[in-house]
Nucleic acid binder design. Structure first.
Length: 202
DNA sequence: ATTAGGATCTTCT
DNA sequence: GAAGATCCTAATG
């Protein structure tokens, strides 16, 4: 029964299980500018080629190459011509399952995180939304494929404070039309950093 | 409070 | 040519 997100076994499990377990965990990026850490409060699971909402639905492309690789690596993709978003690859090699990191609270490196966002952004909004979360961590395409389990990696996970079942809310994934009936979005009930409160409530 | 539009990548039709 | 795992700003009620 893996409990630490810093192990390969943690990511070998089904992506919805990994997603739920990631709530409350801390993602940390280290760059020459410094360190930023975010405690996750909202994530979404995607399956591989079985999942019509997944980037891997139609099979491998150059972009999704990393999704088909080993678990515990980051799949970083460019969205809507503007934004970067981060997933963590799950299950065994070849399965293309992943968890999208959607929102969190900045718990370390607030000043650096703030410098990567619009001036005047409220604390709770710094990492609210997948592109915002990637932005405060300083991530872009050069991070695609990075191993978050490897010691000394620039992107790592910490145990954080796990979230009790009573505080976990599940629902349909945000912004997807195909596969919208699959309740694989997980977030912390009532947390102000959750990105889709206004749209879906809870 | 809600809505509409812009930015311009990757993939599919 | 269109849609998408988005976010921000400006224009409206």
């Amino acid at each position: 029964m893996p409990t630490s997100p810093a192990t390969r076994a943690f990511f070998r499990r089904p992506s919805p299980v990994v997603a739920r377990d990631l709530l409350g965990r801390v993602v940390m990026s280290t760059t020459p500018e410094g360190l930023v850490a975010v405690r996750l409060v909202e994530v979404e699971a995607y399956a591989g080629e079985d999942d019509p909402a997944s980037h891997a639905w139609r099979g491998p492309t150059p972009r999704t190459r990393v999704m088909y690789g080993r678990p515990g690596h980051a799949y970083v993709y460019f969205s809507y011509g503007m934004h970067w978003c981060v997933n963590l690859v799950c299950e065994q090699e070849g399965r293309a399952a992943a968890v999208l990191l959607r929102a969190g609270e900045v718990v370390a490196g607030e000043e650096l995180a703030r410098s990567r966002r619009r001036p005047g952004t409220a604390h709770a909004r710094l990492a609210s939304g997948p592109a915002n979360l990637a932005a405060v961590l300083g991530l872009d395409g050069s991070w695609d494929g990075i191993d978050v389990v490897a010691r000394g990696s620039g992107l790592r996970l910490r145990p954080g404070v796990p979230v009790a079942d009573a505080d976990v809310v599940t629902g349909p994934r945000v912004g997807v039309s195909r596969g919208a009936d699959t309740p694989w979005r997980f977030h912390v009930a009532g947390n102000p950093c959750v990105s889709a409160h206004r749209r879906t409530g809870g």
